[in-house]
Amino acid sequence: MKKTILGFLVASSLMMTSCLEDIATDLVGTYPFNELYEIDQTGAFEESRTLSVADVTDEIDFDGEVKSVGVNSVKILVTVNSGNTAESVDLFANITSGGISYDLFTKTVDLTSFTVGQEQEFILNPELNPAAVTLFTLKVKEIINGTFDVNEQFTISVGGDTNPGNSTIKATVRLMIDSECVYTTN
């Protein structure tokens, strides 16, 4: 009887495990770039962040070889601070790495409708430069897969110029790049 029961359980186990055999599956994780740029400047300005490998890998929520990286959306959250005299700002974001540089977007933000401390969101997908998106995704993929050359700095900047030109901008700009990482598990 014991043999019969054991045989039945083993057969059942084999049936089950064979149904759940390892299969390569494309899964999707995220890498959310989220940086706050403090701006207190008269005229043109540019604030930069250089990303380290850890800055990226600490933010991802998966393990596995990345097949591709894509950007789902880019947006900025702008807050005007006390003392701001700029009526508008011509904003841009820039992606630079390995001697290659592209503006991710340019956007004129009218600040006259802002109240101090109020945050306004601008989703910028239609204004994105595909070349900058490609550079960003390429570098994120290299970092996650461990092929990034650390001598090639990976820098994301936010800059702009105020209108009128001699006015002072006192604001914070939060740049959010929601990216997806397609990875395979088996």
């Binding site: 059942s12 049936m15 089950m16 149904c19 759940l20 299969i23 390569a24 599956t25 494309d26 899964l27 999707v28 591709s68 894509g70 950007v71 789902n72 959306s73 880019v74 977007f105 910028l124 997908n125 239609p126 204004e127 994105l128 430069n129 595909p130 070349a131 900058a132 998106v133 490609t134 997806e180 397609v182």
Partner: peptide
């Protein structure tokens, strides 16, 4: 299917729906 589905959007953006476990049979005991 284990293969993801990726679609293109504005400004070079993409959106990917992940693959599944490619299972034909789910057991229970």
């Amino acid at each position: 299917s284990g293969e993801s589905v990726t679609i293109s959007g504005d400004g070079g953006t993409t959106y990917t729906f992940p693959g599944g476990a490619d299972i034909n049979f789910i057991p229970l005991a």
